[in-house]
Nucleic acid binder design. Sequence first.
DNA 1: AAGTACATCAACCGCACGCAT
DNA 2: GATGCGTGCGGTTGATGTACT
Length: 314
Amino acid sequence: MGRKPCCSKEGLRKGTWTAKEDKLLTDYIKEHGEVGWRSLPIKAGLLRCGKSCRLRWVNYLKPGIKRGNFTPEEEDLIIRLYNLLGSRWSLIAGRIPGRTDNDIKNYWNTHLLKKLKSQGLEPKRHKSLAKHMRRPKHKANVSSQNNQKSNKEKKKRKKQVKIEKNCNIIEDKEQVAKKTENQWHTQDFAQKISANNHDITCSSSSNTATLQDGISSRAASTSEVVNCNNVHCSSSGQNVEENDNEIYEKLQVIDELLLNDNCLPPTECTEFNSESQMLLMENVYEEYFQLVSENSYHFQDYAHSFVGFSQDDL
DNA sequence: AAGTACATCAACCGCACGCAT
DNA sequence: GATGCGTGCGGTTGATGTACT
C-alpha cells in the first residue's frame, strides 16, 4: 500500500519564506519546542507543509547557524570527511558546528568540487558508502521501552543473523580485495583503526546507553573482519566523570586518525577497494559522530582546540 | 540599457527508517 | 507481521542575483 503524502498539498504556500512566516515559525518553536512538525504549521498559523517548516527551521532559523563564507579549516575538514564518508552530509555537518548539511552540500557542489577539479583532485563518488547508509537510532521514550522489549529481543536476534551473513560476504570480498594493487593503502589505514579498536568500541553512560547495543554488535562484526578481538564493554557503575574522560580519550584517538595525514588514505585512493575496510571505517566514524553529538556539551574546550572554533560557535 | 549565461543557495521531492498500532 | 505515521536524509530543482556581451 502506498504512502500518503506528508501533508495535503492544496492551499499550501511554496517557495521562499517571508519574514512574517519566519517570525510565526520562530515564535512557535521558541514556545513549544521542535515537536510535531506535521501539526506545527496549523498550530502556528502557517500555510506550509510540516516538512517545509522543519527545513526552514533547521537550515535557516535555528539559533547558532553560521552564515557566510567557510573558513579554510572548515574547507579542509569537509574535504577530508568527504574522502572518508562520501556524501553523508548530515554526518559531516555534525562535525562542523554551526553548519547545516544543506549548507555543506551546497558549498561542496558549488565551490569545493570546482576547486578540487581545477587542482586535478576530483574525488570519486562514494556510492558504496551511501548504499550502507544508516541513520542513528532515535531514543525511545520510557513508556514505549517496556512494550517494545520483546520486539527488541526478536529484532536483536534478527540483526545478529544479518551481521553474521554480512561477515561471511565481507570476508569473501576481503580476499579479493587483498589482491588489488592498492591493498597496502587501505590495509594500513584499517590496521591503524583496528589497533585502536579497543579504545573506541564500547562505553556506557546515561546518555550513551542507546548506543551500547549497536556499538557492541558492530564492533563484534568489524573486529572479526580485521582479526581484532579486543572488544570490551565497560558496564554501569562508572561515574559520569570517568565516562566523560573515556569518551574524551576516544575522540582524541579518532581525531588523530582523522587529522593525521599519515593515517588518512592517500588522495589518489579515495575509493576504498575493500568493502570490509570501508564498512569498518564507516562504523568507526558513525560511532565517533554519535559520541560527538551526544556529548558535545562536555567537549567544548576540546572542539575549540581541535579546529579553532570559539565556544560561542558551539 | 537589454539580453543572455552562469552561479548560488533556499527549498522541494522522494525515499528509507524507526516506532506505534 | 503488516501497515501507517512522523521524521530525517540526500539528490535535485528553480528562483534570484551577478557577470558578461
